[in-house]
Amino acid sequence: MALTGVSLIAFLVVHVGINACIWAGDGGDMFNKASHFMGSTVVIRILEVGLFAGIILHIVQGLVLEVQNRSRRQTAYAVSLGNRGSKWYRRSMGLLGTLLLLFLVMHLSHFWVPSRFSTLETITIDGKEYPNQYADIIRVFHDPLVVVLYLLGCASLLYHLLHGFQSAFRTLGVGNNRYLALIKITGFWFSIIVSIGFAMMPISVYLEWIS
């Protein structure tokens, strides 16, 4: 769980980095180049298989963990401890994960499927043809419903990360108080920056901060 979690965290860094290219102010050239690189390089394609395997493994592990852990208490309490013992999102990783999975299905069908199966129109940058991923983004994020769903997805990601980041490192055995403090603070800012970074994309497009 923790290992797959940490590798997915690493992927998020790449993903948010490439997303940031839309704000380069060059009409999406840089972004299109970057996404083409991600889509056409052999090494990346291999990594992509790994990524999907990681996601699936993470989901299966999470599912098994949730089912097993739920079976460890056969009679529920009449009054539950709730937020007096732990923050709600620390106890709701299964729910947040499920929301993220639903989001992911939508997200993949929006962007990954068209780009992989070459249904995108093309654009010529510096004399070379690239699939115009950027245009696709502009199109998709003009639908307000999609923007709202994406923002919900980002919120789920935020809370999933707020717990998941430090929990992963605890499970991997970071038991030194100094390192733990570092991980707590890093985890907090990482979750906020990454989630806001993702959320800014649909917002920017919808509010036409970029075109």
Partner: peptide
């Protein structure tokens, strides 16, 4: 069950045993 680091245990422990022990 398996630990998911929710921190509930630490918050109710009468002897304030730290969750750092779990890590």
């Amino acid at each position: 069950g398996a630990c998911t680091n929710t921190q509930a245990c630490e918050s109710v422990c009468p002897k304030e045993i730290s969750m750092t022990n779990i890590a």
